[in-house]
Design a protein around this nucleic acid. Structure first.
Lengths: 245, 245
DNA sequence: CGATTTATTGAAGAAACTCAACTCGAGTGG
DNA sequence: CCACTCGAGTTGAGTTTCTTCAATAAATCG
């Protein structure tokens, strides 16, 4: 008999599980919760006792500097586990917000950690997920440090569209992306005013349109070329790992 | 009888190990290698079969964009393991260079991974190390996205000095830091010309001097205030974990 | 020692910012 | 249904930060 469990579904996408591993995962209690847009989920300095998996929606990680400026550090799509790290680093070093109305699956740290210690192959998958996050952060460092506005925006849009497709949330280079200009500005390290100008330019170039929370890429190759986007940093290469015999 | 092993020393700094764990670590073959300054250690796209621990020296991770600009993503000090991630993400997404002459301890992936799978508490420590790296990347995103030249440099210097002290490589707010202006520029997302001007300003403010590969901070509090530096993101809070009974 | 890299300084220009006015659309309540 | 408000986006003008280019000075290396 098949039992559904969000964590099981998530993990089975990356590796083949043994019966024992499956049973252990099924034993992890889950708690689904709906979070409305613009609500903070966890706060910098928190010591959360649980992590979460995004079932549906959009969240972002951000930090506010002492002088009051916000930098968005990452966007999280369905299937992401944005604060897995709190399992090992007790004090959270960033905020997480719901950008859109989101459905989250909460998982208490205690059973999650026990699961990892008992089944190291599962721990490896958790670890791997955080390594991909780190890789995306590195690519953002490049984007913020080395590219100017137009290319920066192009790169971000390419990343988001690619990940939306992986998450099954995009069709025909179109997806919902309910960000304000201010959100984009804080992700790209520019001002909202400049976001408006850059978006206008991208539209004139017939590369992308971002309009009313919808992202539509008209020229995939052109946008990728402008943004110097190469998806290697997402580490998407499908590598299903077989269960040990 | 006590046997010395660089990985054992590294891990014993963060957790108490059981006898079995110690024995397993001692069984991991190590291979020490001296790497001269300005030599590449691993390259983006590589699929390394080994990771390394820095015994002594200074390395950096960097990426070069298609248009030929380099962004330095992180600096690595003694006791760091810069490419631990290649254990689970086979394709490396950045280059690693030796900035100074460095002594590296190479560890083959196969025994390292077996060690983690057999001893999940050790895997947790490896995981944790990569999580701290990720946290530093996030702080760099904030630095690159939200602060201007002067504050950016101040923040970087505070980070490096703090980590140098932890690594036992700094005294009296002084340490060796053999970076060129070009290196600093590529780490901060500004030009070498501007680095020169910013360093001059920091000197005039009597906050720091950076001269001939030596970093000396004259006013720790002033520099931290200017750079909005708060060391939380380094996750230094000492938390030795006891061995299970 | 000369050669070459590294750092400094000045002047002109580009990218992005700030400030302010204006437009547009989505509610909300009368 | 319309008037009103409020938040979000757009546009223009002037300013700041940082870049680029170029020339010079200083340090390092063979």
């Amino acid at each position: 008999m098949y039992q559904s469990h969000p964590l099981l579904e998530r993990l089975q996408r990356s590796i083949d599980l043994t019966a024992a591993e499956r049973d252990a995962i099924l034993a992890v209690p889950v708690h689904q919760e709906a979070v409305p847009a613009d609500q903070m989920i966890v706060r910098e300095g928190d010591r959360p006792q649980r992590s979460f998996l995004i079932e549906d929606g959009l969240t972002c990680a951000s930090k506010v500097t002492r002088s009051g400026n916000r930098q968005i550090l990452a966007f999280h799509l369905p299937d992401d586990m944005p604060d897995l790290q709190s399992l090992l680093l007790p004090r959270l070093d960033f905020d997480i917000w719901a950008v859109a109305n989101s459905t989250l699956i909460f998982l208490d740290h205690a059973p999650l950690r026990a699961l990892g210690l008992e089944h190291p192959r599962i721990m490896e998958q958790f670890w791997r997920a955080t390594l991909v996050d780190a890789s995306i952060h590195r690519e953002w460092e490049v984007n913020l440090g080395q590219r100017q506005g137009l290319a920066r925006m192009a790169h971000l849009f390419c990343e988001i569209m690619t990940r939306m497709e992986v998450a099954g949330r995009a069709r025909d280079s179109r997806c919902a992306l309910p960000l304000t200009h201010e959100d984009l500005a804080d992700a790209l390290g520019i001002t909202p005013v400049h976001v408006s100008r850059v978006l206008g330019e991208l539209r004139n170039l017939r590369l992308v349109e971002f309009w009313r929370g919808q992202l539509e890429i008209h020229d995939r190759a052109g946008l990728a070329a402008l943004g110097e986007f190469e998806p290697d940093f997402l580490h998407l290469e499908a590598r299903r790992i077989e269960a040990p015999s």
